[in-house]
Computed example of a mutant assay.
Amino acid sequence: MERLTITIDDDLLGEVDAFIAQRGYANRSEAFRDLVRSGLEQANSETVTGRNCIATLSYVYDHAARDLPKRLTQEAHEHSDLAQATLHVHIDHGSCLEVTVLKGARTAVKAFSDHVIAERGVRHGQLVMMPIELPHGHAPGHGHAHSTTATGSKKGSRG
């Protein structure tokens, strides 16, 4: 095992120490190893191409932004092969959270997510991808829904 020396600012170290206390790590080394593994997994999931994934795209947006809800709904409809279901939550008078479950090729999922997050009026966005193996002949968007949203509506609907 190699020993490394790193330099980080006091504020970041405070965040790391709070993370260590919250998660119950025995020491900083264990925490840093897990954080590095997690960062590498995330970086790899963003660069691997041609493989299938299941993903969640979470984003907060300004629902009063000009035509944004309409544009977001249109995007989901145009990518119904990727967008499996969407949960819509009203946060306050001007903000909404949406969580969209996506399934398909990583490159297509990433491109769709990047486009949604880049929309004017989307304040925060995050994509979490997990690799999946699809059975032979069972392609994404194969024509039937396996689940419904929290409101019980069919896939691809928005509340």
Rank of each mutant, 00 (worst) to 15 (best):
H88S: 09
L35S: 10
L102C: 05
H142T: 05
A64F: 12
I6L: 13
H90E: 08
L13K: 14
R120Q: 10
Q84Y: 06
H136A: 15
G104N: 02
K110Q: 15
V89E: 02
H77I: 10
T151I: 10
R37A: 06
L57V: 06
Q22G: 11
K70Q: 14
S45T: 14
A108K: 11
V109Q: 03
P140S: 04
L57C: 02
E119K: 01
H144A: 12
P131G: 09
R23D: 12
T151A: 11
N44G: 12
E75K: 05
A111C: 04
N27W: 03
R123G: 15
I54D: 06
T149F: 05
M1R: 08
H77V: 06
L87T: 12
T56V: 13
M1E: 13
L35W: 05
I20L: 03
K70E: 14
K70G: 11
A145K: 06
T56L: 02
I6A: 04
T107E: 15
V36D: 04
S38I: 07
P69V: 13
I117N: 00
E119M: 15
P140L: 00
L57W: 05
K70D: 12
N44W: 08
H63M: 06
Q84N: 07
L127S: 12
T148Q: 14
Y59A: 08
D92L: 11
G50A: 13
F32I: 15
L4Q: 01
S95D: 12
